[in-house]
Structure formats: C-alpha cells, structure tokens
Design a protein around this nucleic acid. Structure first.
Lengths: 340, 340
DNA sequence: CTGTTAGCGCGTTCAC
DNA sequence: GTGAACGCGCTAACAG
C-alpha cells in the first residue's frame, strides 16, 4: 500500500500538501498540485478508506439489512434484485458503497444494530426483518438514517407499494369483467411486512364498496408466500363446498404459480373455469400460459425512492414518513369475461 | 460512540488493559477482565471497525464484484441469490461481511480494483464481470485472494458448474428417450462467462459420440440469456426448412420460457410436437405446464465452494484452480418418448 | 499482571 | 502557499 507519505517524499512536499492537493483544496499552488497528482498516479496511490473513515467520521458505507428465514420478503423474491440494483446505482453515483448485513450470523449476540455502529455505516436500507430487532432498531434510527422498503416500523421512514389501492383495483378489474364472487388467497398476516394485511384490506374494501357478496369461505390465509404455500391455500379454497367464486386474487405471483399444478390435476383450466390474478409482476407471468394477469410492483422505483429518501436524510433534510408507490395492473389473459 | 478510553476511565484501568480484556488475551487478571467487560456492556461499547482495520491491516470485509450490463450472468439470474446467500452464510460464520462492488459506478476511473484496495477487502468473490478489467484484476489477484464463480479468468481460482458434462447428459437423456435429431439454442459465445461455449461443446461431443446426425441448421446462437433472446433464436430454428429435430436443448431456462409463447402462437404443443429441455433449474420449471425438464445448477453448493476456496486462501493454503460442480438432471414432462 | 508509548494512514488546525 | 504537529480508535511492543 502506497501512502501519502510516499507521495510526499517522491514529490518533494509534505504529506499535508499531498492531502490538500488530492482533495482539491484551494490553498495549494496549481503547479504543486499537478506535480503531486502526477506522482500519486505514477505510484498507483489508492486512499485508505479506513484511515479516512476514522478521521472523517464518515464511511461512505450504506448497510443493507435483512434477516434470513421467516415469512416476509425472501431474498429470492422477484422484487429484491431490481430493487437493490436501482438503489445501488443511485447510492453509488453519490459515492456510497453497499454493505450487507443480516442478523442470522452466528456471531455472538447476533446484533445487526451493533454492526451498523461498528462499521460506522452512514445509512441503512431495511429490506426484510424479523420482529426481534424492532426496539434496538428504533433507537439506532435516531443516530443513523434509515429507510425501510415494504416494511412498516414505527419511527422509520418507509417506501411501500400501495398494496391497498392495488388490491382494491384488482377487485374492481374483475368486477368490470363481470365477476361477482371473488376469492382471495392472502399472504401471511402476522409479520412485520405489511403486504399481507394491506392487500386483504383493499380486497375487502372493494368488495364492500361494490356491494359484492362474500363469506368466510371466499378467503384463506396462506402460511407463506411461496408456490407450495399458495397451492395448499388454494386447495383449501377449492375444497369448501358451495364454491361460488369465479375468480381468485392471489397475494403473490408465486402463490398463483403454485396453484397451476392444482388446477391441472383437477382438470380446471384458466381462465375458462377460473380467472386468476396475481401480484408482483414476476417475469414468468408474461410468458407462461398465454400470459397471467398481475399487479406489477415497480421495483426500480422502489429502489430509487429508498435511495432518494436516504440521501435526503444524509443531507439532514426531512423526509416523508411514508412514500407510496403504485403497483401497475398488467392485464393479460388469465381473467375471462363473465356474461352476467 | 463510546471508546475503550471511556471504558478505561469507568473501570479505572488503562486503555491497553481494556483492549486485552475485550480481546480475550490471557495476560489479564480474571477479575479485572470481568470488571472491564461489565463496564463495556454497561456503556454499550461497540468496537470501531475502521480503527481496528487500520491497525490490524485486516478488514473482515469480502468484496462481491460484478458489473452491470453485458450478457453474462445478470443480477436477476435465478442462480445469483441462492448462491450469494449460501456464500454469505459461510463467510459470516467466519466473521466476514460482504461489500458490494460494481464497475458501473460513475466514480471517476470506474476502477473496481482500486476500490478493493481502498476498502482493504480481505478477499473478493467475482460473480459477473465484463472483459474490461481482466488485466488489472489478474494483478490485483496476486495481492488479494479471489474466487470467480462460473467465470474463467486466467490465474484466478474458479468454481464452475460442469456445463460440458450436463450438456452431454442432456443429449444422452434425449437419446435414451428415442430422439435422434436434437437442436440446441446456445447462449452467447463471446463473453467471459463460459456457460455458452461449454454447453455447446458438451452438446456437440455427445452428438458425435452417439453418431447422431446434425447440420448447421440444428444450432443457433442466441444474443443473450433472456426470454426474448431465446424466443428470437427459437424462431430462427423453426423457420429453417427441412426441420428434422424432435427436441430442443436450451442453454437456459429463461430462453426456454421465451419459447413458450412462440410454441403457442404456432399451435405447437410440448412435449407432443416438440420436446424441450432447459438449463439452470429455475423455479417455474417445477410448476408450469406439468413441469419442464431442466438441469439444476446447484447454486447453494456453488456458493459454499466459493466460500471454502476463499477461506482456504485467506488461511494461506493452496486451492484447486478449478472446482467443477455437477448440474443435476431434473426430469419432468417436457420431453416425450419417441418410438424409433 | 498492568500501564506507557508509539504508530496504523489520513485530514486538519495553525504557525511560518 | 506550505509544513509541523496532533488526533481519530485501536492494538503491539515494551517497561514496570
């Protein structure tokens, strides 16, 4: 590792001058600066981020925090990568780098918050968390800027897909096609993630506003967001006698995917026998079975909004406590018209 | 931030003793240690990773390097997350944290390698790279341990799916079902990623060993790995006159997915009219259309192997230059039996 | 067993 | 316009 002392010696100036020249300060002669910079590049100088961070009390590091396991947004969720990607792109443009955290580490204490302090991260993006850390997190959030994505934690700014509205629109859409009895496979309702409850609420509100009939048998709560969870829940729905619904709104595309083998096994076809509509905008929905209708979560926009919020906080500005990002209806061919 | 000086004052000892006590050194009285630890936890002490890194010349940071754009493994590849996840789990258990790098950053010089030095990362995982950095990377690799995944860079240890063998087996499998004329939609052949060329080679070798006929029209190189690229390539294949093949081996599940709408539009059904086989083990292949046959890349194992290799290098041990991980045939129902 | 000293690499006073 | 001295928080070497 070559240091500013090496450069100083080579350029025949003092370390302090090197520092100034390299950091674009004005109190240094242009000729000296050019000379210093030349020496620096010639030696292949790379500043030591630790030393700088230690001195400046700024690490240019942003933590991405999540916990493995549990039922909220899994790491392999279709949303995660595009979200992270757009977030990263923006933060990077501002000079920040991303540090991955999780609270599964076998480190004693498994304290994600401590890690944030230890690494001196300038900010944190919360993408998935179990309920454990909530309190510690809230306290930490007073010292270090945080944003959560699709996660609601009291006192921490959040960027969240407008689940309620999208779910409401899902029902409206099916209604406009003539459906009068609409079932819902909800996601888990008991986690920190708000997707499950919010989508259910939107579904119910629309049902009420449109004066649609429904009873308990039109709704089932899934254990998780994965295909197999969806399949299990879907089966429960179908098993109930006096089944009247003509359409099913799944809280995730993954669950809808799980329903496909079930449909096939039962000799049901989509959309002729049953209209299906999902949530997330997974890639397969575009290509499979003539195209499945879904609500596309705007992953890139979520990432951008998170980045923006964090950057504003880093600048010391106030931010909205909750930013809602609309999900877009992508109408394809898994919902049929019903002649009323 | 509370420092060891704060603890020292509170505990009535010197900073050095605090350091020793906290780091489990033996040259400190058990009573003093207990007292120090008590004071530390009471004050909520968290060690400063920058200071420690500066002093110890060890950052406990591992870089995950990739570049956006280009045609090799995209960030939203089904492999990426599980791979990263298993890698992270192991590295974390050893005390390392993950730092994300990419060379798209608008930082002047866009030099990923410089970042590695700047952040003093202890090791690097290369998951996707454009060709640009190759030389700088090779030089850097002499100073800092690296592993590449599904990427072949001269002089850098690699963990790679056994593409040749899997492609070979794909042909064998189709042969065993009675297919005698087998087409191949290859991935891009000109990138750093070896998947395209290796799978093509395996396909060709099997064809030769089994004395199967084939001509140029049985093969097409796709522009990318995505569904639309696959669709385009697939169309080219179908458009050729004298089409004799009864099965198509796609170099990626994503491309196979792109072929689905094409099949439908043309009134072709799978497997009755055409047998299809993919590569990667994407989740949808399990649920869609009765199940599609594919070769599952063992993402977790890839991640584990990368971690192991890196850890061994970190320990100063030698590692195999190339570790091959087999891909597993997952036979489902997209390939039919042919009566010869 | 404990404390003093020094230095990791850098940026910032404040003299000159 | 330039340089000497200091300190960020921590640990290693050496004294006591």
């Amino acid at each position: 590792m070559v240091t500013i002392y090496d450069i100083a010696r080579k350029a025949g100036v003092s370390p302090a001058t090197v520092s100034k020249a390299l950091n674009g300060r004005q109190d240094v002669n242009d000729v000296t600066r050019a000379h210093v910079i030349a020496s620096a590049t010639e030696l292949g100088y790379v500043p030591n981020a630790h030393a700088r961070g230690l001195k400046m009390k700024k690490s240019w590091l942003v933590g991405v925090a999540y916990s493995d396991g549990g039922v909220s947004m899994p790491l392999d969720h279709p949303l995660f990568l595009p979200l992270l990607d757009s977030f990263k792109r923006i933060m990077e443009a501002e000079g920040y780098e991303l540090l991955f955290f999780s609270d599964t580490s076998s480190l004693i204490g498994n304290n994600m918050v401590a890690h944030c302090f230890s690494r001196q991260v300038d900010g944190v993006l919360l993408v998935k968390l179990l309920d454990i850390e909530q309190n510690a997190l809230r306290t930490a959030a007073q010292d270090i800027p945080m944003v959560s994505c699709n996660l609601l934690i009291d006192g921490i700014p959040a960027v969240i897909t407008d689940n309620f509205r999208a779910a409401y629109q899902a029902v409206e859409y099916l209604y406009s096609l003539g459906h009068r009895r609409i079932a819902h496979v909800a996601g888990p309702l008991d986690s920190l993630a708000v997707a499950g409850p919010e989508r259910l609420a939107g579904y119910r509100a629309a049902l009420a506003d449109l004066h649609l009939e429904s009873d308990a048998s039109d709704f089932v709560e899934s254990k998780g967001w994965a295909p197999d969870d969806g399949a299990e829940a879907f089966l429960q729905l179908l098993d109930r006698k006096d089944r009247l619904f003509t359409a099913v709104f799944f809280a995730s595309d993954a669950m809808m995917m799980g329903a496909m083998p079930v449909m096939e096994r039962l000799g049901l076809s989509c959309p002729d026998d049953l209209s299906l509509i999902g949530f997330d905008g997974a890639q397969w929905t575009e290509y499979v079975g003539g195209g499945y209708t879904t609500f596309r979560q705007q992953a890139e926009l979520l990432g951008v909004s998170c980045a923006r919020s964090l950057l504003r906080q880093l600048d010391g500005d106030e931010v909205e406590p909750i930013v809602r990002i609309p999900a877009e209806l992508v109408a394809r061919h898994s919902c049929c018209q019903i002649i009323v």
